[in-house]
Design a protein around this nucleic acid. Structure first.
Lengths: 335, 335
DNA sequence: AACGTTGTTTACATCGTTGTAAAGAGCCGG
DNA sequence: CCGGCTCTTTACAACGATGTAAACAACGTT
């Protein structure tokens, strides 16, 4: 074990509290004492014990970020933004993976590790509003995404309906008329999938094009393989689509792969657009058009909501914050 | 704040210690008392305070994993393996990003957050053996990679020389003779780059081919853009290569992009192989041949070394463990 | 010389938990 | 009915840090 404050006090010949005062820059410490203590601090290589500090009522300097899948590039890149921006709040980020399992998500909320973190940021997949309300733990919480937009907690999201609308409108502007959508989740209500589907439909409606059930393909997990499978099925239709909007970039990349294997030219035969703006899409051949949410802003907003919640206490009403997005037109949908 | 053990004791009309005994399954508690306490526990929704427990000398159930860059797919996928396998040790993984900065890596080692985690797993980029030796903190540590193979700590790695040799040999078997390497780091000694370069050279030597300085390109950060830039430079040579071994998959994907833009057919004109086995390579067009280290094994080995170190105390000599790898032949180098 | 000021340092309690050791309760045999 | 035994419960200290409030110097006033 390292040296404790007590060891330092003994070494410097002062009281424990004086050492504490030096450490915390308490103003009334004589220069001589301060120097003496600092010397001992250095000599014994003192390092504070966070647990003790926390126990005393302080902060740990750790916030937890729970995402469904850390190996998914979107979440990995988002996590990187959190790690980065957390620095300006003097926080370290504990990243947790829930696998989208409701139990795991609940465990995070219910604070199995409570008292170890100053706050929680959760990107829920399976959680319900009821779970949120049933929550007893008092650790400040920020939700990511619109999944539980009306739960009584702070949340940060982007306008998914508008993003999906912009993606679909872009394909329409290219003159495409049979536009497929990959990633619907008929059995999940209120989730991101439902919002993106809504935006897709709105754009078609605005262009006076009826939406066809054939062209809307569900996907369970939003992986590359799901996009691949859905695209393959679409190409087998009697009337295949001339464009596809995938609800995330990974599926779009799977779709591009399927198109490549079938020898369908992109974008000439089928134009493709994704959603997320992961780096992978920029280097894919063809490079992937996409809607890119401002991940830096998401991280900044979530962290500052958390900071407010922590410093002002839990009494203020829940806040909502929206981050922007941009349309990136690349090869997979270029004129 | 949630209920403390003290609140539970008052509610159940017993002493604090009795509650503690019930919680920890101390044998001599009468059935009646146990039932009463458990009732109160449930009613007050008691949850232990980990800090206090830790302060008392216990474990936190948290291990820290420090990687250079969490947004890099290799590390994201590796982290996912750690999160997954940590479950069987009843650990949560705190993921930290060092950006490869020596200072950040040192801070992790020196235990700024010491006393908060049971152990550390660090994938060093800039750390020196001296840093390891200067370490005062007693938290058990496992290093990943061969970078500091001879430091006096447990470490887990793969045989990078042999992996690089296998990758290069594969290209030689295709009949290629001008084989380039992307990713050398002339100013860093003993790192992964040096080992992979060594394996590359060994394979060439075994085939009786002199290695040419022109064909060995440095890369600072191992990102897609670095591979892109290096490949572009290689194509501008008077005698461009007919194959490329990239020291990681991301650079290989950048190289593929450069080849695509120049209209060079892959693998007919230039065959490409990477290193890491990230999922992205499997869906790229063309799909990427690569050397894939067994990431699950890396995680398992590192966690069990850590577990041993924690349970047996720090007295046993440092252990070394090696995980396997496999050669995946895909389109970028297929016959 | 007694007093209040101001500046500096300290003892003590506290946070939530668990280990130690001792006290209390119930029972049996003598 | 007491001593000794087992079984159960408890008081207390400790982990490392910090807030409170009191003690203590050193100083200038009256």
């Amino acid at each position: 074990m390292g040296a404790s404050i007590k060891d330092v006090a003994r070494h410097a010949g002062v009281s424990v509290k004086t050492v504490s005062n030096v450490i915390n820059d308490f103003p009334f410490v004589s220069a001589a004492t301060r120097a003496k203590v600092q010397q001992s601090l250095a000599e014994l290589d003192y390092r504070p014990n966070l647990s003790a500090r926390l126990l005393r009522g302080g902060r740990t300097g750790v916030v937890a970020l729970a995402v469904p899948e850390i190996s998914s590039p979107y979440f990995a890149e988002l996590a990187a933004q959190f790690v980065q921006h957390a620095k300006s709040h003097a926080w370290t980020v504990l990243i947790d993976e829930t696998q989208g399992a409701r139990d795991s998500e609940r465990i995070v909320l219910d604070g199995i590790k409570s008292h170890l973190v100053d706050g929680l940021i959760v990107s829920p997949l399976a959680l319900t509003t009821h779970d949120i309300n049933a929550r007893r733990d008092r650790t400040p919480l920020v939700l990511l995404g619109e999944r539980l937009a009306h739960a009584p907690v702070d949340h940060v999201s982007i306008d998914n309906v508008d993003g999906a609308r912009a993606a679909t409108a872009h394909l329409l502007e290219l003159g495409r008329r049979r536009i497929a959508a990959i990633g619907s989740q008929p059995h999940v209500s209120g989730g991101t999938a439902a919002l993106r589907l809504k935006g897709y439909r709105a754009a078609l409606r605005a262009a006076g094009i009826p939406s066809s059930a054939d062209l809307i393909r569900p996907a369970p997990r939003y992986h590359r393989a799901d996009g691949y499978a859905a695209m393959t099925a679409l190409l087998d239709l009697p009337q295949p689509p001339d464009a596809v909007f995938c609800f995330n970039d990974l599926m779009a990349i799977g779709a591009l792969r399927a198109l490549h294997e079938r020898g369908v030219p992109v974008p000439a035969g089928v134009a493709v657009i994704g959603f997320d703006g992961i780096e992978e899409g920029d280097f894919h051949t063809p490079s992937l058009s996409t809607i890119r949410p401002d991940r830096g802003e998401i991280a900044r907003l979530a962290l500052s909501l958390l900071d407010n919640r922590i410093t002002t206490g839990a009494e203020t009403p829940p806040q909502e914050a929206y981050a922007g997005f941009e349309l990136l037109v690349r090869e997979s949908s270029a004129g």
